[in-house]
Structures are given as structure tokens and as C-alpha cells.
């Protein structure tokens, strides 16, 4: 069943003539992990905001077409209700810490308090999410005393505890070091494996290739590719639109040009495929 159904979505930020999103149409099935890739300014963040209702409710602007999330029309549903079905985590971990709470445990409870969840119900939910995101040890620490990766996991836990049906991530690791990025990706993967629908805008194509069920590539606010990672991430259109390729695809392409890659074999997007390709050539 489709949890997201976007039909002819076009969106302009206020006082702009160029649309940030242009005639987008696609669907996402429940439990799918969809990665959104694109160069800076391609519309990835705007798509994340449109899926969570921030565009147009928060940013205003002009929107045409329809975005249905779990059956709710984002244009006609208040943000407060949309937050219950679609959770948003974005780039800067520090700015997602509310500032209203002094410990990680209280920080995670903040969303539940705002939703009016009874305290007795809060604690088991918080404990479960903290264990899932691996932050149980930080429960009594200040959220500001944590590393970027740890803060981002707190931000993730703070959204997940509200039990949304859909998790929207806007470049969640762009400001993190490799260790922090790995911690966050592993947490997202764990959520996806539990059946949560995930939409993640991301630049790190190796991670996209590893995790995503499907990849949507954007350029100038339009969808240029939409399909399985192996198909989208090896498309020449990615180079044309300055999105890049995984390092494995790049190396294999070069090897192909020098007849060092098996001609019948598809280009790799993950390390295992690259290794298998080079081994097959060697044989």
C-alpha cells in the first residue's frame, strides 16, 4: 500500500520565480527505504519539507498538485497532525536540540509532553527508543555535551519516540565525521529493518547504494531518475547533472574503458559487486 502519493507537485518559495520542485509525481510503498539524491539546490530539502508539510505550512510559498502522506493531504492538514505521521530529522544536529530540556532523557520526552502523552506511558516508549538508537548511556547527560553523531541520534530518537509512520531525513550525516555518520546510518538501517518507511535525502552515494531499496535523483526540482540503486547510480545522467557516482562505479568504469572489467557485467555500486567483478575478470 502506498504511504506516500505525490501527484504533479510544483512548489515555489515565497518571492521566487523559479520553482524549487517542478511537476513531481511518484509513490512510496509502506516499509520502503527511498533515497533522494541530487546536487546542491536540486530540491532535496524542499521535497523533505513538502513531505512533512513544512512546505507550504511553515515556509508559505505557492504549491500546486497533491501530496498525500498516510492518506492525509499535507496542504489541508495542520502540521500538528502531520507530525504524528511524518517525522523530520535534518542536517544540523545542534539546532534540533530543543534547548528546553537539560538531559537527553527529558529531551526525548519533549515531543511526547507536547502531544499530551501520560507520563506512565512515556517512560517505556523512551526506554525502548533509547535502546534502539544506542543512547541509553547518555540518558542523564546534557544534550549539548554530546558529539555531533550522538546529538543526531538524540534528534532521531526524539522524533522516533513520537512513533511516526514515515521518517524523513534531510542529509542527516552531512555535518558528521565518518564515525558519527556510521552511527547514524546504522540506526536508520535498524529502523528500516523494523519496517519503518524511510525517505532520506543524501549525498553519500556509497551509503545510498548500501541501504536504499529505491533511488530518486533530482535536478533543478525535477525527477530525472527513479529506480533501483544499481540502475540509477550507474546512469550517465548523474555525471551530467553533477551528482557524481560511487567510487566503485567510477573505478569500474575506468577499468571498463581499459578492458579490465568483464564486458557483460553491470557496473558496481557497492564494494561487494566491485570485488566480484574484478575477481570474475581475473578468472
Amino acid at each position: 500500500m502506498a504511504i506516500i502519493a505525490i501527484q504533479n507537485l510544483t512548489y515555489h518559495y515565497p518571492q521566487t520565480t523559479q520553482p524549487a520542485l517542478q511537476d513531481l509525481s511518484f509513490q512510496v510503498e509502506e516499509g520502503e527505504f527511498v533515497a533522494v539524491i541530487g546536487a546542491n539546490g536540486a530540491g532535496k530539502s524542499t521535497l523533505c519539507y513538502a513531505l512533512t508539510g513544512f512546505a507550504p505550512h511553515f515556509f508559505r510559498g505557492e504549491m500546486s498538485g497533491q501530496v498525500l502522506v498516510a492518506g492525509l493531504d499535507t496542504r489541508h492538514t495542520p502540521l500538528e497532525e502531520l507530525m504524528l505521521v511524518a517525522g523530520l530529522v535534518f542536517q544540523n544536529p545542534g539546532n534540533q536540540i530543543s534547548g528546553a530540556k537539560f538531559t537527553v532523557y527529558e529531551e526525548i520526552a519533549f515531543g511526547l509532553e507536547n502531544l499530551g502523552v501520560p507520563p506512565a506511558e512515556m517512560r517505556p516508549r523512551i526506554d525502548r527508543i533509547m535502546a534502539l538508537t544506542g543512547i541509553t548511556d547518555f540518558a542523564n547527560r546534557s544534550p549539548y555535551a554530546l558529539s555531533g553523531g550522538q546529538q543526531q541520534r538524540v534528534a532521531l530518537a526524539s522524533i522516533l519516540v513520537m512513533e511516526p509512520k514515515l521518517l524523513v531525513l534531510d542529509e542527516p550525516t552531512s555535518q558528521l565525521d565518518p564515525i558519527g555518520s556510521r552511527e547514524v546510518f546504522e540506526t536508520i538501517r535498524a529502523m528500516s529493518k523494523q519496517g519503518m518507511t524511510v525517505i532520506m535525502a543524501e549525498h553519500k552515494l556509497e551509503w545510498v547504494a548500501t541501504f536504499a531499496d529505491r533511488v530518486i535523483a533530482l535536478a533543478n526540482g525535477e525527477i530525472i531518475l527513479n529506480g533501483p540503486p544499481a540502475e540509477v547510480l550507474t546512469s550517465p545522467l548523474l555525471i551530467e547533472h553533477h551528482i557524481g557516482q560511487t567510487r566503485y562505479t567510477t573505478v569500474a568504469k575506468q577499468a571498463q574503458a581499459e578492458q579490465l572489467w568483464p564486458p557483460e557485467r553491470a557496473l558496481p555500486v557497492v564494494i561487494d559487486e566491485a570485488e566480484a567483478g574484478f575477481r570474475a575478470y581475473k578468472k
Partner: peptide, 23 residues
């Protein structure tokens, strides 16, 4: 930062018109 923090607060239902509870 203010804009991002406002989004983060909205995402945590801070403006929700419900009776808030406390941990």
C-alpha cells in the same frame, strides 16, 4: 539557526493545541 530551531520545535509538536503533560 532560529529558523532551523523553529522547524525542530514544530517537528516536536511544540505548537500542538493539546493539553501538555510532563515527564
Amino acid at each position: 539557526d532560529v529558523e532551523e530551531r523553529a522547524i525542530a520545535l514544530e517537528a516536536r509538536a511544540f505548537k500542538a493545541k493539546r493539553v501538555k503533560t510532563s515527564l
